[in-house]
Simulated assay, not measured.
Amino acid sequence: MPFLDPPTLLLANLLVGLTLVLVFMSTRVGLGSGARGMRSWLAGDVVLLTGQAVIAIDAVDFGRLLDIPPLTLSSGLVTAGIALHLVGIHRHARPAQKGAAPHAVALGLGVFVAAASVLMSEPAHRVMLLHVVLVAMLAATIARELVAVRRFFGVRILITAMGFAIVANVLLLLGAAARPEDVLKGAMPGLLINMVMTMVTTSAFVLWLQEELRETLRRAAHTDLLTGVLNRYGVLPQLRRELARSARHGTPLSVALCDIDHFKNINDTRGHAAGDGVLQAFSGALLRHARATDLVARWGGEEFLLVLPDTDAAHALAALQRMQGRMAQEAEAAGGVTFSAGIASTTDGAAADVDALLARADRRLYAAKATRNTVVAH
């Protein structure tokens, strides 16, 4: 087909490479520190497209291709390029693991495939070696790196594209074994498919990085930086959803505002660093003693909000008193402090909207603070 002639593919290869470089440069600036693994992926794009260009340059005469270095060079470059892509995935999925070893392994695989191809006289054997190495690398990366983060749409696209590549390589491997004399007939269409796959996987990788950054920013906006629990803006939407669910199903819901007793004295006598440590220890104790379905949030200063779904006032009172008792037994883990709490519930018989619940809990907290280390539910 005329549109698959080598000059056209070389031009397409060059345009694809320039486009990917521009996309990566702009994305790298936008993502900042969230762009882990992008350099490795970009290096893989450059090496992979170079390997494809080598085949296109030399593809004018397929018979000559069997006896000159470009075929061997291209196999090594394609292997190294895809391996560098997988290093980029590894670097992003496991940021704690640093060092040059993964890049050395990627380049070593490319050298191995190229060297082994030189020793093979049959072109079918060279093609089969390339396909075996690619299938092993892609399958291992999906299983070890991508399955765990498949909640991101970009990762699902990556898994799909890499799965397609695995199937294609297996079919080509079987075809090379069954009809070794036909291994070069699909070279030019294969180059076109490889360029499209490079664009798809690169776009999917960039999408994954952007999605992950959005999730990080959203979590940071809804999380208290010091204690790691929800902040006011993070818990209010969830409280509204729980309240709506309570109204739909006719189940009770309670909220408790908790205040660390004599917190100002801790800051004044022991310093603000000690006060921060008390806040962290107290929030950790609340999380340990709360149920998995409960919500814990820092409401502001030394005040914390507990949301207890499917819990009426009496059971909420019992739960908070149990927490007080356990924290007294774990005085060191809880920061050596006590707390007061005010509870409001949808079973109070008063208005059950968010503002009304919080206002009642706040009034009862004020009453509890009159004696300290007390829980007031009525």
Rank of each mutant, 00 (worst) to 15 (best):
S74M: 14
V105K: 02
V87F: 03
S74N: 13
H90T: 04
L86R: 03
I89F: 09
Q97S: 14
L77M: 15
G88M: 12
P102I: 03
A80I: 07
L77G: 12
A96C: 08
A101H: 05
A96T: 11
R94E: 12
Q97T: 12
V111N: 04
P95C: 04
H103V: 09
R94L: 11
A80C: 13
Q97F: 07
V87I: 05
V105H: 01
H103A: 07
G110E: 07
A101E: 09
A93K: 07
T79G: 08
A101W: 14
G88E: 11
G88Y: 12
S74V: 09
H103W: 07
S74R: 12
P102Y: 05
H90R: 15
G88T: 13
A83K: 05
A93W: 05
G81C: 04
A96V: 12
A93M: 14
L84K: 00
R91G: 03
H85E: 07
R91C: 07
A104N: 02
G81F: 05
I89M: 15
L73V: 15
I89K: 11
L73G: 15
L84H: 12
L109D: 03
G76D: 06
H92R: 15
H92Q: 14
S74D: 13
S74Q: 10
A100P: 08
A100H: 04
R94I: 10
G108H: 09
P95S: 01
R94M: 09
I89S: 07
G108K: 13
A80P: 13
V78W: 02
V111I: 11
A80G: 12
G108P: 06
A83G: 03
I82Y: 06
H85Y: 02
L107Q: 00
L107C: 03
G88A: 11
A96Y: 13
L107S: 00
L77W: 12
H90P: 01
Q97E: 15
Q97N: 01
G81Y: 00
P102A: 06
L86I: 10
G99F: 01
H92K: 14
G108I: 01
G108C: 01
R94P: 04
A96M: 10
H90K: 13
V105I: 11
L73I: 15
K98P: 00
R91F: 11
P102H: 07
L86F: 06
V87K: 10
A100D: 02
H85P: 04
L109A: 10
G76V: 08
Q97R: 15
P102V: 02
S75F: 15
V78D: 04
L86A: 09
G76R: 10
V111G: 09
L109M: 08
F112P: 03
A101R: 05
H103E: 09
G76I: 07
A104Y: 14
A104I: 10
P102M: 03
A96R: 14
A106N: 08
A101G: 08
L107P: 05
L109S: 07
H90F: 15
A93I: 13
A101C: 03
G88Q: 12
L77H: 11
A93V: 15
P102K: 01
V78T: 06
R91N: 14
